[in-house]
Write a protein that binds this DNA or RNA. Structure first.
Lengths: 232, 232
DNA sequence: GTATATTTGCGTTATAAATACACAAAGAAT
DNA sequence: ATTCTTTGTGTATTTATAACGCAAATATAC
């Protein structure tokens, strides 16, 4: 037993992990809870912060334990915010720090002693445990906002992709229509993407050109919030 | 005594409160600690989250208790982030949620049983307690970023102000030079400010025109992150 | 198998916005 | 009395945004 002079809340982390594929569009990674409360319901991967562990480290650890996802030490989770409603967990007072991140779906192995982990398209989400519905909604809003001010896609698209793929990713997040040609021009002018190899001269116009992100320029624009801006 | 099966961290809040005046520029509100650790050192206003209290509510309460500041229930604190270094407090494991806010200096009464509270210009800060130096630095960076994407000034300038005053506020936050005429044009075109009364016809050109914020439009632009953008 | 629709790349043009200054009047500083 | 500073107004120039045309290849429909 651990005793304190004043009552202490428990602190947990939750992660909203976004994945993407051309068929389902944007999806969120959820796990099925194995224990009460909300046994067998869907919830965000997450768990209790250890006493000698930083909060973001906890989010990474829980993510790995529950979904097999091993985030690169480079790619940092984005802090979404603190959720502190006094009755959000029936067991005890629990304060949660939520994070979000974009990953390639293929990186989820779901191995280990992983509870059942599954992708749900953002417009077809299940019933949630706790206040996780609100957290996911906030994450989607946040992602929608962030996409205007920093480049998105490096972690969520395959290494080599086509302009139509990048365009569709943006459209499926923003849910608005904008001109594909202006979008491609902007991406090129920003210098964020490089053409991969040469297009074979026997290839038809219908075969899309392949690109990869220019990591150097991508990181630069990610940090310099003034330089990157989308309108739409 | 309150006992738990697993060890629990303590949770606190800290507030970075910015004020402004033409002479000192941007300042931060700090209090002198009355107890150990860091007795008599300067620290951010803040304190322990109560077990039946939401985190943001705690930040408001502590702010009021320690500085006399009573924030309008409308103006919400902005969440800055979570600070969770395992040794940031020598007493026990403490996780802090930091907030920031802009206020008029005059609103700080410093009454009550308030510990000594004082404004420090951001480029002349004292030694800090805990990791509050990092928190303040982060808040300044965050403010610098936010200023590009949403209107700032409603809470920090007097109700009626002049364009040169608004211009100087922006310059003292951003610490870059930009054209005052283009800035004024932009503010006018955004519809964020309304001229107050008529300029007396005997008034010279040297007497600045008075403005107040158009609250409706201000709030609109605050929420629609796409509509408000500064370049500089 | 032919007609039609869709996808892709590569443009152009009109409108709007950002940027960089010019200038004059009033007052302050020297 | 002269010079410098502050304030408001205005105007070019450059740059970015938004809307759209077109042809080639291929997929789809009938």
């Amino acid at each position: 037993m651990y005793c304190y002079k004043y009552p202490h809340p428990a602190v947990t982390t939750d992660c909203v992990v976004f994945g993407y594929d051309p068929n389902d569009g944007l999806s969120v990674l959820l796990i099925r809870r194995g224990i009460e409360p909300f046994k067998d319901c869907w919830a965000l991967p997450g768990g209790f912060v250890r006493i000698d562990e930083e909060v973001e480290a906890c989010a990474r650890r829980e993510l790995n334990e529950e979904t097999g996802l091993q985030l690169s030490h480079l790619s940092d989770l984005k802090e979404l915010g603190c959720y502190s409603g006094v009755n959000r967990d029936p067991r005890e007072r629990v304060i949660t720090i939520a994070y979000y991140q974009l990953v390639r779906k293929s990186e989820v192995i779901g191995g280990d002693d992983a509870k059942e982990a599954r992708w749900f398209p953002v417009d077809n989400l299940p019933e949630f445990s706790f206040d996780h519905k609100k957290i996911v909604e906030d994450a989607i809003e946040r992602l929608k906002r962030d996409i205007y001010f920093e480049p998105i896609g490096f972690n969520i698209l395959p290494e080599v992709f086509t302009m139509p793929q990048l365009y569709k990713l943006y459209k499926s997040i923003l849910k608005v229509d904008f001109d594909r040609r202006n979008f491609a021009n902007k991406m090129m002018k920003l210098g964020i993407v490089d053409q991969v190899g040469h297009r074979p001269k026997d290839a038809s116009r219908r075969t899309p050109i392949q690109y990869r992100f220019n990591k150097e320029r991508y990181e630069m624009l990610k940090n310099d919030k003034k330089a990157f801006r989308l309108e739409f």
